[in-house]
Design a protein around this nucleic acid. Sequence first.
DNA 1: CACGATAGACAACCTCATTGACCATATAGA
DNA 2: TCTATATGGTCAATGAGGTTGTCTATCGTG
Lengths: 158, 158
Amino acid sequence: MSSAPPPPGFELPLRLLLAFRTIIDELHERIALEGHPDLRPMHGFVFQAIGPNGTTAVELGRRLGVSKQAAGKTVETLEQLGYVERGSDPADARRKVVRLTARGVDCLVRSARIFDELRAEWSATLGEEQLRQVEDGLRRLAPGDPFRLDTPRWFGSP
Amino acid sequence: MSSAPPPPGFELPLRLLLAFRTIIDELHERIALEGHPDLRPMHGFVFQAIGPNGTTAVELGRRLGVSKQAAGKTVETLEQLGYVERGSDPADARRKVVRLTARGVDCLVRSARIFDELRAEWSATLGEEQLRQVEDGLRRLAPGDPFRLDTPRWFGSP
DNA sequence: CACGATAGACAACCTCATTGACCATATAGA
DNA sequence: TCTATATGGTCAATGAGGTTGTCTATCGTG
C-alpha cells in the first residue's frame, strides 16, 4: 500500500518535461528521415494552429499567444520553406488566408502517423493499462484544451 | 480489456507539456506570494544548475547548454535581482564563483516545499496509487537524469 | 620560463519577440 | 446612405537573449 516514501515533488514536473522532449525529439528525428529535415519543435504547433481549413495571421497569433506581427513573420518563414501559402479571401478583402501547402499537409499527416506509432511503442513498453492510467492522470491533472500553443514564448523573460 | 479505442497519439505529448506548464505556473504563482514575484520559469533551472556550492559562468553555460557569454549575462541579471552574488576564488584568480545569496537559497527551499505540497495535492486528486503509476510510467518512458538543463534553449530556432 | 589552455569581459551581430503607428476594408447605427 | 468604429495586415523602432570573435589575465605543464 504505497509504503515506500514518495519521491520528491520536483521529480514529476521534470519527468513531464523530459518525456515531452523525448517524444518531440523522436518525432523530429523520424520525420526528418521522411523528407522534412527543416522542421523545428515549434513548427508542429504552428501547423496544428493553422489547421486543415486555413486561418489568418491575426487568428494564428491569438491561438499561439503571440502578437499578430510575430505570427505574420512566422508565416513568412514557413512560406519560404514551402509549408504554407497565402491567398486572398474573396469574401473579405482584408483577410489573407494562410493555408498549408501539399507539403505542409504531408507533414501533418506524417506527424499524426508517427505519433500513433510512438504511442503504440509506449503501449508495448508500459502495457496499455498503465499507459491509459498515465493519460487519464494527466487529463485530470491538466484538464482543458491541450492545444495551448503559446509555449514557445512562455519560457523567456517578460 | 481496454476495449475503448486508444486516444490519438498526439494527445499524450500535448498533455505532458500542458501538465508541466500547469505545475510550473502554479509554483510561480505561489512562490510569488511568498516574496519572489520576479522569477521566471527558467530561473529555477539556473538555480539548480548553480547548486549549493556555487559554480562559474563557464561551467554554468555548459550545464545550461548555452555559451559562457550568455550564462554570464544571465548571472548578471540574477545578480541585479539579488538572487546570486559573485566572489573571487582565492585558489584561482581567473575564476569568479557564482553563489546563491540567502535570498536565492530561500527561493530554492521554498520551491522544494511547494513542489512537495503540489505533489500531495495531486496525490489527493488521483490517489497515491495512480500518481505512482504516472511517475513510474514517465520514468520508464523517459529514463535518465531528469536534470537536463538545456531546455530553455531547446525551443527556439537554430 | 615559455607555451598552450582556461576564465572572464567587451563588442558586433542575429533572431524573435514586443509596441506603436498607419492604411485598407468591413460592419453597424444615426 | 454616410459616418463611426472595429478589424486585418504591414512597416518601423525597440528590447531581450542568444551567438561568434577577440582580447586580457591567469593557471598548469613542459
